[in-house]
Design a binder for these strands. Structure first.
Lengths: 230, 230
DNA sequence: ATAAAAACATAACAAATGTTATATTTTTAT
DNA sequence: ATAAAAATATAACATTTGTTATGTTTTTAT
C-alpha cells in the first residue's frame, strides 16, 4: 500500500524543493510578504486570479459552496503549502474559495511575476502540472472516503490526516479546528460529529482540551479503519 | 447559478473543438482506431501512461479502489470524450483506472505522437491544462454532493447528469448502467439504491424497462433538489 | 473584570441507510 | 430452446445519522 498520508496530501510544500538552489533563489526573490487577517479570503470562487501564495505561518481552508448554503471544505492548507496556481495555468477563474483560519503570514507572487518565472525556469511548469495531477488523485481519494466510509471511519481518517499535516511543519501538536469546520470536512452535522468525538473520548482514543483534539492512540484509529475497510 | 450540468461535466469532448480546422486535421490524422472489448481496461491505477483516447462510440467508467475493495466510480465517459492525458502531462503514473462498459470504438494517440502534437500546435497544451483546471472543479462539486446530500438527492442529481450526458452525443435515450455501477457512483449499496429507485418509480418520476432507467418528470427531480438544498 | 455572544456538549427522538434474506427476472452458455 | 448463472427487486429488521432542544463552556467586546 502507498503511504497512507500521501494519498490525502497535496504535497504542495515540496513544489519548490525540486528546483536547484539557484532556481529556488530566483523564486524566493520574487515573493512579497503579506499578512492576511483571520476570516479574510485569499481568493474566492469566480474571482479573477491575482497570483500564487505560499503560507509562511498559519492555516487556511479551501472550500466550495454547492447549490446548498453549507460550505464543503476539501482541504486545509498549512505552513509551507503553495496554493492558487490552478486558475493561473488554465487562464480561468478560481474554482473555489480559500479563507484564513487564523492570522496568516504568506508570501505572494503576482500573476505577471509568476509567468515570468515560468519563462526563466524551464522545469517549473512541469513541476506544477505534475502536482496538479497528484492533487487530482487526492480529490478522487477524498471522494472514495466520503462515498464509502461511515461517520466514525471518516472522522478517524481525517483526524489522522490533520494531525499529520499540522505537526509536519509547525511544531504544533493537536488539531485545532472549529467543530463546524471539522464537520464540513467530514460531511456531517456538528451534532453528529460531537457524538462521534464523545465516543472516541470515552474509548480513550482522543483527549480534548478546549476545542483542541489530541490523538492518544493512533493504532486504534488505524485498526478501526482496517476493520471497517473489509 | 452556473449551468447545472456543466458543474458536473468534464467537457473533454470540447477539447479539440477549440482548435482551428487546420490544427484539428493534424490531430485527427495522428489518431489510430482501436476496438476495446467490454470489461477490459483502457488504463489502470499505477500503470505507465501509453497515450490518450477519444471515445468514438460506447461508455467507460473511471474509478479508483480506496483501501476498501469496492470501486468508487467518479466519472462515466461517453461518445466524444477525451481521456488519459493527466498522467502524460505530469510524467506520472495513472491515478485511476478506466474500464469499458460496453464494446468500445476509440481513437488512440500514442504518447510520443501526442508530445509531438504539443510541439506542433502551440495552443494545445493550454487547452488541455485549462480543462484539467475545470475538471478539478468538477471533482470538488462531486465531493460537495457526496458529503452534503442524502441518498434520494444524490440519486436525483446523478440521474439528471447521466441522462444529459448520454443523450448529448448518442441518440440513446435512458440510463443503461448496472445497479452495482450506479450504486458505486452514488455512494451506497445496490439494495439501498433499489429502495430509492422504487420510490421514484412509485412516484412516477422514472420508468424502468429491463435495467434501463427513463426519466419521466425532470421537473420533480429538480424540485426535489431545491427543497432538499435549503 | 464582567456581561453578552458565540461555540460547544449532550441527550432524546425521528428519519435515513445498511444488512440480511429470499424471490424474481434477465442474461449467458450450451 | 433450455438450463444455469448472474443480476435485480423487495421486504423486514438493525444500525447509523439527522434533528431538535437545552444546558454549559469559551470567547469577545466593553
Amino acid at each position: 500500500m502507498k503511504n497512507f498520508y500521501s494519498q490525502f496530501d497535496f504535497q504542495s510544500e515540496l513544489l519548490f524543493e525540486q528546483l536547484t538552489s539557484e532556481e529556488k533563489k530566483i523564486v524566493y526573490n520574487a515573493m512579497e510578504p503579506l499578512i492576511i487577517k483571520k476570516g479574510s479570503l485569499l481568493f474566492y470562487e469566480e474571482g479573477i486570479p491575482t497570483g500564487i501564495f505560499q503560507i509562511k505561518k498559519g492555516k487556511a481552508k479551501k472550500f466550495k459552496r454547492g447549490f446548498s448554503e453549507t460550505e464543503q471544505i476539501f482541504y486545509i492548507y498549512t505552513t509551507g503549502d503553495v496554493l492558487g496556481y490552478h486558475a493561473l495555468f488554465g487562464e480561468e477563474r478560481y474554482q473555489d474559495s480559500c479563507e484564513a483560519l487564523e492570522d496568516l503570514e504568506v508570501n505572494f507572487i503576482a500573476k505577471d511575476v509568476f509567468f515570468k518565472l515560468l519563462e526563466d525556469i524551464p522545469s517549473l511548469q512541469r513541476v506544477f502540472i505534475k502536482n496538479i495531477g497528484h492533487e487530482f488523485g487526492v480529490l478522487a481519494n477524498i471522494i472514495a472516503v466520503l462515498a464509502q466510509k461511515n461517520l466514525n471511519a471518516r472522522l478517524a481518517i481525517n483526524l489522522l490526516i490533520l494531525e499529520n499535516r499540522f505537526q509536519k511543519h509547525d511544531e504544533e501538536n493537536g488539531i485545532d479546528l472549529s467543530r463546524e469546520d471539522l464537520a464540513n470536512i467530514i460531511g456531517t452535522s456538528s451534532e453528529s460529529l460531537g457524538r462521534s468525538l464523545k465516543r472516541f473520548k470515552d474509548d480513550g482514543i482522543i483527549e480534548v482540551d478546549k476545542r483542541i483534539i489530541y490523538i492518544k492512540d493512533k493504532d486504534v484509529l488505524f485498526k478501526l479503519l482496517n476493520i471497517e475497510f473489509c
